[in-house]
Design a binder for these strands. Structure first.
Lengths: 257, 257
DNA sequence: CGTTTCCTTGACTGCCATCAAAAGTGGTGG
DNA sequence: CCACCACTTTTGATGGCAGTCAAGGAAACG
């Protein structure tokens, strides 16, 4: 059997500053209030100091602005300090597909690892702040520290597992199960960030939820109305209050009739 | 805002041998015919020697046997030397969902990176051989070598991108587009391994294809029959011959009416 | 050779997309 | 402050795609 040339694209690191957008340089992880949620969770003092030494920039990103675009060269991973983002992949026919939503502490941009180019774009759903961490420097740091290696690996693994969960959702759930699953997911992530698990504000539109869940925006709206009339949730526009957490959970798991 | 305790589970490495199954120890990447396809693609001499020094085991896995199970502790990543595997995640209600198919050169088991436990199970679709590489040793190797780091990162990134592609498929394609997309994917991967892109043997059942594509097995069968009657493919049981590659590609992209 | 599993094809049903319209919301500028 | 416009959301009516149920046939397995 002939072995063709390896399919591994060399990762290009261009040591240029990211285009546009003023940035406050020199952020310190060691004094950051979001540290426990973020990439440096579990770092010891030496690694924290090393992260500090990177002196990476914190950028403000306004609602609707993009952090990176599909096909763009890979320079930075972005730690989401505050705000909300969506990831969007453009499909062949110009249509867009939302592949994920991101909250504070999430790390964006890892989908560029394979090809050295971003496979999706990330845009802000509200005014947000991100720490732009040069990936090459992070990789170098990981050579010297098992903690850094583990943290990066953990993020990558979490993204893989998260996408697998989304696959399960899309492949095997009906509309009600998908929407219930979505609400519970957001709820758990809000709680993990210290917010209420029972009441939160959705930053994304029905159309974006629908794209993410593989449903039309009308179906999302209808299911939310149905949940409301069943007394499971109270929905007022983008504000959601969960009234019966277990009822929602049952909506997800009731596929074994 | 209160920051809760970090959600990072410590990865447990138990230095025990993998249970059961006789194994031929001491494989050498440097003399392996699959090297160019596999994890060590792009390694230089020093890294190859280091991989050789791991002296990891090659295991034979018979059709139907499992490499690891959901929830099992993470010890090894598996480089698929020959054969075919499927990854399966069990959903809450006992139902199963195929999350991927794997061919020679693919690396299995990376979904355990996040939690230290496998998030899915891998079972062989035919008699196969895998190289069981102790992850802890691979991680240590990656501390010293940028090539090893890049190779591992590249695999992780490829898995992320691959799952994103599957998300797009499930969220936005109809049955014909999904099946066409599946056939083209298998075709491209066979070609990348030096086999014919136009004629191959599917190792998986219609039910497994359906689970992977989010379709019923009957629908998979019907779409294959339809493609056959359109002269796009010739299907005989599990043997597939692609007659009009462009026709299939058009089936995927014709969603912009 | 019998048994089991897999595949194909048909008939029917139902879930959800699509089309459509009305009501609500937010932003802008006169 | 209010009028105006664009956008989002909700709700209804309809139709189509694919799931489900069912049965016959083919292949694989022991």
């Amino acid at each position: 059997m002939q072995t063709p040339t390896p399919a591994i694209a060399p990762v290009q690191f261009v040591p240029a500053l990211h285009a546009g957008v003023p940035a406050a340089a020199g952020q310190r992880c060691s004094t950051c209030s979001r540290r426990a949620l973020c990439l440096p969770a579990g770092y010891a003092e030496p690694e924290l100091q090393a992260m500090d030494a990177l002196m990476f920039a914190r950028r403000k990103v306004k609602a609707g602005e993009r952090l990176y675009r599909q096909g763009e060269n890979f320079h930075f991973v972005y730690a989401l300090h505050s705000g909300t983002f969506k990831s969007v992949a453009a499909v062949h026919g110009g249509r867009e597909q939302v592949t994920g939503f991101h909250l504070a502490g999430d790390v964006l941009g890892l989908d560029a690892l394979a090809e050295g180019r971003h496979a999706s774009e990330a845009s802000a759903l509200e005014d947000s702040e991100v720490c732009a961490i040069p990936y090459r420097q992070l990789a170098e740091l990981s050579a010297g520290s098992a903690n850094v290696r583990n943290a990066v690996s953990h993020r990558l693994g979490a993204q893989i597992v998260g996408e697998q969960r989304a696959l399960l959702l899309l492949a095997s759930m009906n509309a009600e199960e998908r929407v219930a699953s979505f609400l519970l997911d957001i709820s758990a992530r809000m709680q993990a960030r210290g917010y209420s698990a029972r009441e939160f504000h959705l930053r994304m539109s029905r159309a974006e939820i629908g794209s993410y869940l593989g449903l039309s925006l009308e179906t999302v709206s209808r299911v939310l109305s149905a949940f409301q009339s069943q007394g499971l949730v109270a929905v007022d526009k983008k504000n959601v209050r969960i009234l019966q957490m277990e009822g929602l959970a049952r909506s997800v798991e009731r596929e074994l009739h």
